[in-house]
């Protein structure tokens, strides 16, 4: 199949390719390799499972040891009562109230933009 398209061929070969839209590569990578990395990453790593299991086992053993202790019930009651009494003491309530008031004041202060008088405001 002979042709005489030399001029057309030259023009076609010289025709530059259109630039892909910005962000296309990023979108492709997001849909492929980055997506796979997100999916394939385990929610909990093995060492995390091991640490959680060990902590739970130690906690269970401590609770069991405490409950098995003869004077546990009495000591537990005593400590609970002491804690409630300490919390209900006037001094504790005053400090608690002061803390809450300061926290509320800081919250309100943070949401209001302070306006200082500027030069433009004078004229």
């Amino acid at each position: 199949m002979n042709d005489d398209f030399d001029e057309l061929d030259r023009a076609l070969f010289a025709l530059p390719l259109e630039e892909p839209p910005p962000g296309l590569r990023r979108a492709i990578l997001e849909a492929t390799v980055f997506s796979q990395a997100r999916v394939s990453a385990p929610a909990v790593r093995p060492w995390e499972s091991l640490a959680a299991g060990t902590t739970l086992a130690i906690g269970a053993w401590l609770i069991f040891a405490l409950i098995a202790y003869k004077g546990f019930a009495v000591a537990f009651n005593t400590e609970i009562v002491a804690a409630v009494q300490a919390f209900a003491a006037p001094n504790s309530l005053v400090w608690l109230g002061a803390g809450c008031a300061i926290a509320a004041w800081l919250t309100v202060l943070g949401s209001v933009r302070l306006r200082l008088p500027g030069r433009g405001a004078r004229s």
Binding site: L17, E18, P20, P21, L24, I28, A31, T32
Partner: peptide
């Protein structure tokens, strides 16, 4: 291959948005 694939898709679809989608789909 991003540029070449996009170019082929653009020539075939004649719509930049669809060409973009096709190129993305092809790589996916």
């Amino acid at each position: 291959y991003e540029r070449a694939i996009y170019h082929l898709c653009l020539r075939t679809m004649r719509d930049p948005e669809e060409a973009r989608d096709c190129a993305q789909e092809a790589f996916f």
